[in-house]
Design a protein around this nucleic acid. Structure first.
Lengths: 195, 195
DNA sequence: GCTCAAAGAGCACGATCGGTCACTTTCTGT
DNA sequence: ACAGAAAGTGACCGATCGTGCTCTTTGAGC
């Protein structure tokens, strides 16, 4: 059953790409099948419906995201070094790694926030997980640790800057966006560690 | 020709609502026509194509946005009071005024950033206008005025917090989002006015 | 190397997509 | 009040949507 797994992975990657560009609601099975080099009905040997395919795509997208951001930080000491690397890689994720259509999670968040269903449920569940993981790292910025509220506030601002950078860079082609995001983040870190 | 204008306005409002919820690419003429109480072909008496309808929708959406944010600030003195009101109303715009599907501009920005065409061109053009108008107000935060770079940085952070609040509130139901955005913004103002 | 399931192709389905056209109704300017 | 334009309807077009079906090809385990 190894051949099938490889094809499945290609389908998920392609679906993620197209969903990041056009949105989940605008992805057609025909386009995905053609891009992967399959017939439309061939897709159904791997996913029983379009919705199942979308769920698997979003789930794998989150896996890739978390691996990319948190994968390499284990070697660094907790606290500021880790949080700095997380933010840097978070910016990279939107700008460099996913140059094609931007971050799938951001696209899905904006698209699905008003559309109830299993896809939104999955999205919310995994964002909650991510928030928790991020808060854990952020808390270690200070000794004694930051409170839950403080950590949440720092996490909020980090995500805000990531969103701001993606918006400025991707839509407006603003090449200074990364620098702006990084400067705002550095100031945030200084304030947090000091306060 | 007065009856037609009223219908046209209803069509644009409904299209904006649906586009904010599902994205422009997922809006169907049938759904819009039904919601407005027209036949599908009736739409074509007001717009020669779907694309023209989308362009008019986005353009009107921007008009509404700018009017809502900048309309009432004229009575306030330039500088901090105006910028504070702009930010407050900007938050309201995403959270209160457009409870249905969120801010159309944010939705369009994420959806269109990788899809070239007249719709994206219009979006970019109007965002540029908005940036310029915002920078003008932000510069007056200090005397002597902020430099272009400083104003751009403050504008970037303001938009970041707006995006962060929308993300946290709309998708995750985070009721503390507005407070977090406002706290981050207040700190930004203090730093800017002082520095 | 044979077997049998997995992988994939091809076709057809009902529904819906954006859009056209001929027609009727309704409004408006005079 | 009446003429003519504007507003709106319903039927229909070809294309595409997601999905089921039958069939063939391919690959993996014994």
């Amino acid at each position: 059953m190894r051949k099938g797994d490889a094809t499945k992975a290609r389908i998920l990657d392609e679906t993620a790409r197209q969903a990041a560009v056009k949105g989940f609601g605008a992805v057609s099975l025909n386009d995905v099948a053609e891009a992967v080099g399959l017939s439309k009905s061939g897709l159904f040997k791997h996913f029983e419906s379009k919705e199942v395919m979308e769920l698997a795509t979003l789930d794998q997208g989150f896996d890739r995201f978390v691996d990319y951001i948190l994968g390499p930080v284990g070697t660094l000491p907790p606290g500021r070094p880790r949080v700095e690397m997380i933010f840097d890689r978070w910016l990279d994720w939107s700008e460099v790694e996913n140059a094609a259509g931007g971050c799938l999670i951001v696209a899905a968040s904006v698209e699905l926030d008003d559309q109830p269903g299993p896809l939104r449920d999955l999205l919310i569940r995994r964002v909650k997980q991510w928030r928790k993981a991020l808060a854990r790292e952020v808390k270690a910025l200070r000794d004694p640790e930051l409170s839950d509220e403080e950590a949440a506030s720092v996490g909020f601002q980090m995500k805000s800057y990531v969103l701001g950078q993606a918006d400025a860079k991707r839509l407006m082609g603003d090449s200074t966006a990364r620098k702006a995001a990084h400067a705002a983040f550095a100031a945030l870190l200084d304030r947090t560690v000091a306060g």
